[in-house]
Design a protein around this nucleic acid. Structure first.
Length: 1119
RNA sequence: UGGCCUGUAGCUCAAUGGUGAGAGCAUCUGCCUUAUACGCAGCAGGUUACUGGUUCGAAUCCAGUCAGGCCAACCA
């Protein structure tokens, strides 16, 4: 225990943090903060695993600060908060990084480099920056358990994932199906959305587009159409018009999709190519695109082939819903689907009237929307293009032709054009034109991508949709809008989760299938896999040759085979089906989002181990990540929680916004505006950075990161608090204050002490509320304003004298205890956000006082509000004092009289007795603060006050409604007598347009903003006037104070000790003579001199100036 | 293209639908200080992105537009 408070010359936050870090590590402060709460209620936090494959950025600092401060706060609030760290290690970015490092492409894997070696590289590369991340974690003060993190590539982790998958499989939620995915025929591979988002993949291309005409069949549903058409022509043929930019998909057409609420028109006209009379259906809004206005209702009989103007006529209008299920003839009848009920009009929500005809040609094989709506209606599927991108042989004259020029054939003839020509000839095309649009291309081959049906494994999330929506409503989202909006909408429009990834480095799908797909098994754990392997060896599906992979027995070999649950090892495992057939693993890997979404289970290797740990840590009380995780981690956690345990996975989720650069642009390496967190931490320290990130804007708003903001925090908050501490330390050391005296009850302390303690407790209450509400921004701002406004610039400033004047007795001890309590409480309040500085502050205080036995502020309990210490009247009084002082200072400025010049009095009109009493109790404070001798209270009876009345819109608005304007005008026109009546009766009857409208005193605001004959200043209802008469006596006192001020400056410049006594000689100046005589005692006491010697002439000493007079003063230390 | 978020002083942020839109930073002027890198007072700075609407009253609610961002998609 130290006997003196450590004093410092300068605040050096980075240095403080380095020292504290050493201390934390010595004492295992983090581990202790957890063990000290052994047996307490757990507060469960999940760490979203970062990928150590990339470098940490400043945006990681904000989300981790958020996580850290909540965990620290909850720990101090009495919970036990374990924080298991984790690493996300699978996925495409890792693979792309490795490919870049090795200088290979995906095609080379398995050729130039074995899958085994490739994956080994991924495994070592993925934690490439782990040290850097650990360093950031340490330096920013993020307390998370990095000693036993979960790592998604570890066998145990994967085993838990397999268990999850098997659970889903058992529930019938895991299935294989085709999905429409981007596919590059030129490269012969599916493309991930990531690849599709590479720059330059979307290109402007000119394609041949066709508005095709699908001939409607007669049926009950279509009767109303034919009826209308046949009134004009008994032989009328009715067509649906549908536009396509990919005519090569037309042979695979199986449906026409319309919008249920879109209006469609049946139009009588002529085909512009064949000139035959036709009856076509299209969206009414799009008629203008295909028909000239002059042609409407033109004379049909006058039309001749080749006429520019084609007559047209709307025969009827109906809604899309009326067209549902009307059948039509197949447009290009080469092949029919084996299953389903095709060639119908169906309803889809994705149809718009932005372009085309409002009727969408639907080929379920070649569009995601098409496929979805097609499945819903069961229209089957036709895939008449093979994986090389050419038509199957059975597609008539087009068989075998490439749908796009995939082979860069110089003589390539566009199939789309030939299809268009054919349709034109057959009276099945209404318009054919070139159309420029953007279309995705394969980033590697530069050839257009097709959307193509590929096999994929899905999780049937849609089956649990309602439950997910329901449970989401119980989650506390910060901000709430993300939960209802972004996340809620996402859930509403949920589609089944496509798990399949055709890559190498990831969690393998644990499904083994026979070649015919008739039998399959989903493995849910290592032991099960080994058992199945055993069976397989017994059945001879797998064979063991002694010595294989250095093993001596089947068991050993099985152990070897299952030692790494990645490719290629798992693919070497062949299992045996019930009927004895070999089963091979489905080649897919699963989506990495499954890895992270299953972390509540897999981090504990549940259910194979740690069942108790899991039980206690599910669901999470709190998680936090960037808002970009809404449809990522937040979703997969939720989906798996609901599907596996019918539970939310987290109770509160905070999503923080992006960190942009100071101009509001996204940070990107390319632009070079990224902020390196290490530089920032090194320069300003973690605390200032953390404080800035948290208090500058609500975490969920995207924030513009500006270094100057950190500087400001450093100056305004930390420097101020540091100075307050240093001030305390300096005098407490002089007086040997160590808090050894008994705690002085508040009622025995002076008003100002009770005031700051009251404000402090209000602060504790507010901060606690904000933290409980996950509003750290508000909490930080509240602390900041307390430190700056109340503690430093009011309490300490006003109390300075108490610390250096007088004996070490009651009042002084009270001041020390009060300031100590403020500092100590602040250390605790700030601890969650700025863990280093607060621990430093706490340590400095506690080392001397030894009030707490713990060695870190983070092991303490969070302050609890002492309600009895809060005195709202007192706080109001002090606010009055501050306001009055501020007004007086402003008046002094206006008349240019400095504060050192005492003045006689100020005048304050008091509107009621209570106000007078309040001000009276702080009279002394105001008088010394603004240097006046007295305060006069003006009441109405003295006739000094001119009252002014203003309507209180808020209370009147509701009552008066539309009459508000008239009422406001009437009130503003009140005479002094009217105001008096209202004040006396508490009520007043307004007469507005013959209506009696009673108003109450609370409906108005009465202020006295003027005192006739005086210069006044106002703030709200408060008015102050200043008597600026300077009597000779006041002048003397002012001069005396000026002199004191100058001599103090000389003392300071001469580097005298605070306690040094001095000898003073002053040159005789007439105008100062009386001041020196009359205020001799005062001056001497202030400057610590025995007497002031006035000499006729003084050559030595320092020249000073008072009231424009220059003269010399000689100040010497008394020996 | 869709969903969502954001838009207030030069900058960063405030403002339960209640009427002269406030702080801090920065600039300028002056003052104060035996803790301070502080503070105090004053000056200046605004079409609350834009256009409409609802309302007695709109920065706030509604619709649309524009800009920035995130996510999802790119589909006829």
């Amino acid at each position: 225990m130290a006997s003196k408070y450590q004093e410092y010359n300068q605040l050096n936050l980075p240095q403080i943090e380095k020292d504290i870090l050493v201390r934390w590590e010595q004492h295992q402060a983090f581990e202790q903060s957890v063990t000290l709460r052994e047996g307490a209620t757990p507060f469960v936090f999940y760490e979203g695993p970062p990928s150590a494959n990339g470098l940490p950025g400043i945006h990681h600092v904000i989300s981790r600060t958020l996580k850290d401060l909540v965990c620290r706060y909850k720990t101090m609030s009495g919970f036990q908060v374990k924080r298991k760290g984790g690493w996300d290690t699978h996925g495409l970015p890792v693979e792309l990084g490795v490919e870049k490092t090795l200088g290979i492409t995906k095609e080379d894997i398995g050729k130039k480099i074995s899958v085994e070696e490739y994956n080994r590289t991924c495994r070592s590369e993925v934690l490439k920056y782990k040290d850097l991340w650990d360093d950031l974690t340490r330096k920013m003060g993020y307390w998370v358990d990095l000693k036993s993190p979960y790592v998604t590539f570890e066998n145990n982790y994967i085993e838990s994932l397999w268990w999850c998958l098997q659970e889903l499989y058992k529930k019938g939620l895991l299935y294989k199906s085709v999905s429409i995915q981007p596919y590059s025929p030129a490269a012969g591979t599916g493309l991930s959305s990531h690849e599709l988002n590479q720059p330059g993949t979307y290109k402007d291309v000119k394609d041949t587009t066709v508005v095709a005409m699908f001939k409607a069949k007669e049926s009950a549903e279509a009767a109303f159409l034919f009826e209308a058409a046949r009134k004009a022509d008994p032989a009328a043929e009715v067509f649906f018009m549908a536009w396509t930019t990919t005519p090569w998909t037309l042979p695979s057409n199986l449906g026409l999709t319309v919008g249920a609420n879109i209006e469609y028109a049946l139009v009588r006209t002529f085909n512009p190519y064949t000139h035959l009379p036709v009856y076509v259906i299209l969206a009414k809004d799009l008629i203008g695109k295909y028909f000239k206005p002059e042609g409407e209702d033109a004379d049909f009989s006058a039309y001749n082939e080749g006429d520019k103007l084609i007559p047209w006529q709307i025969l009827l209008v109906c809604r899309g819903s009326q067209l549902e299920n009307i059948r039509y003839e197949q447009l290009l009848p080469y092949v029919q689907p084996e299953e389903g009920d095709p060639f119908r009009v169906i309803i889809g929500d994705f149809v718009t009237t932005e372009d085309g005809t409002g009727i969408v040609h639907t080929a379920p094989a070649f569009g995601a929307d098409d496929n979805r709506v097609g499945k819903k209606y069961g229209i089957g599927i036709l895939t008449l293009v093979d994986r090389q991108g050419k038509f199957l042989d059975n597609v008539g004259e087009f068989g075998g032709r490439y749908v796009k020029n995939y082979k860069s054939d110089p003589d390539y003839k566009d199939v789309d054009v030939d299809i268009a020509v054919k349709l034109k000839k057959e009276n099945r095309a209404f318009r054919v034109e070139k159309y420029e649009h953007t279309y995705p291309h394969c980033w590697r081959t530069d050839k257009p991508v097709l959307y193509y049906p590929l096999d994929a494994w899905f999780i049937r999330t849609t089956a649990l949709k309602d439950r997910m929506v329901e449970l989401n409503k119980t989650i506390n989202w910060k901000p709430a809008a993300t939960g209802t909006g972004r996340f809620g909408n996402w859930l509403e429009n949920m589609v089944d989760w496509n798990l399949s990834r055709s890559r190498y480095w990831g969690t393998p799908l644990p499904v083994w299938r026979t070649e015919d797909g008739e039998e399959e098994i989903c493995i849910g754990g290592l032991e099960e896999l080994r058992n199945e392997l055993n069976k397989s060896f017994k059945a001879g599906v797998m064979e063991y040759t002694s010595g294989a992979a250095g093993t001596t027995s089947v068991d050993e070999y099985i152990t070897h085979l299952t030692s790494d649950l990645h490719k290629p090892f798992v693919d070497n495992i062949i299992l045996v089906s019930a009927s004895g057939k070999p089963m091979r693993r489905e080649p897919e890997l699963i989506d990495v989002w499954f890895d992270s979404g299953a972390m509540p289970y897999a981090q504990w290797h549940f259910p194979f181990e740690n069942k108790e740990s899991f039980k206690q840590s599910f669901p999470a009380d709190f998680i936090a990540e960037g808002v970009d995780q809404t449809r990522g981690w937040f979703y997969t956690l939720h989906a798996l929680g609901v599907m596996l345990f019918d539970s939310v996975a987290y109770k509160t989720v905070v999503s923080n916004g992006l960190v942009l650069d100071k101009n509001g642009s996204k940070m990107s390496k390319r632009v070079g505006n990224v902020i390196d967190p290490f530089t920032t931490l090194e320069q300003f320290g973690a605390d200032a950075t953390r404080w800035y990130l948290i208090t500058n804007a609500s975490p969920w708003d995207s924030m513009k990161f500006d270094i100057d903001g950190i500087r400001e925090v450093q100056r305004k908050l930390f420097s101020t608090l540091y100075n307050t501490y240093n001030f305390f330390a300096m005098y407490a050391n002089l007086d040997s204050f160590t808090f050894k005296e008994a705690y002085i009850p508040l009622e025995q302390r002076p008003e100002i002490d009770r005031w700051i303690i009251s404000v402090l407790n209000t602060l504790v209450k507010d901060v606690t509320g904000y933290f409980d509400d996950y509003e750290p921004t508000q909490a930080g701002r509240a602390v900041q304003s307390f430190v700056d406004e109340h503690l430093s610039n009011w309490y300490v400033r006003l109390c300075r004298r108490r610390f250096w004047k007088g004996e070490y007795e009651h009042d002084k001890i009270s001041a020390y205890q009060t300031l100590y309590e403020c500092l100590e409480t602040l250390a605790k309040l700030m601890a969650p956000i700025s863990p280093f500085f607060s621990d430093w502050l706490f340590g400095n205080l506690n080392n001397v006082s030894n009030r707490s036995k713990v060695n870190s502020v983070h092991h303490l309990d969070f302050p609890v509000v002492v309600s009895t210490a809060i005195d709202p009247d007192l706080e109001e009084r002090m606010r009055l004092a501050q306001d009055i002082s501020s007004l007086v200072l402003s008046l002094r400025k206006k008349v240019d009289i400095r504060v050192r010049q005492p003045l006689k009095k100020i005048l304050i009109p008091v509107l009621d007795e209570r106000m007078k009493q309040q001000v009276e109790r702080i009279e002394d404070l105001i008088k010394s603060e603004v240097n006046v001798k007295g305060i006069d209270y003006l009441t109405e009876t003295e006739g000094f006050i001119k009252k002014k009345i203003k309507p209180n819109y808020k209370s009147l608005g509701g009552k008066m409604g539309a009459k508000m304007k008239a009422v406001a005008a009437a009130i503003s026109a009140f005479s002094a007598a009217d105001i008096a009546t209202l004040e006396r009766d508490g009520q007043f009857n307004l007469l507005i347009e013959d209506d009696q409208l009673p108003i109450q005193l609370s409906d108005v605001e009465i202020i006295s903003e003027d005192i006739p004959g005086w210069t006044v200043a106002n703030k709200g209802a408060l008015t102050v006037a200043l008597d600026i008469t300077i009597t000779p006596e006041l002048q003397d006192e002012g001069n005396a104070r000026e002199l004191v001020n100058r001599i103090q400056k000389i003392r300071k410049d001469s580097n005298f000790e605070l306690t040094d006594r001095i000898q003073v000689k002053v040159a005789a100046i007439d105008s100062l003579k009386s001041a020196i005589i009359n205020y001799n005692d005062y001056i001497c006491t202030e400057i610590l001199a025995d007497r002031i010697e006035v000499v006729p002439e003084l050559k030595d000493g320092t020249e000073i100036e008072i009231n424009d007079l220059k003269f010399n003063v000689l100040v010497n230390k008394k020996s």
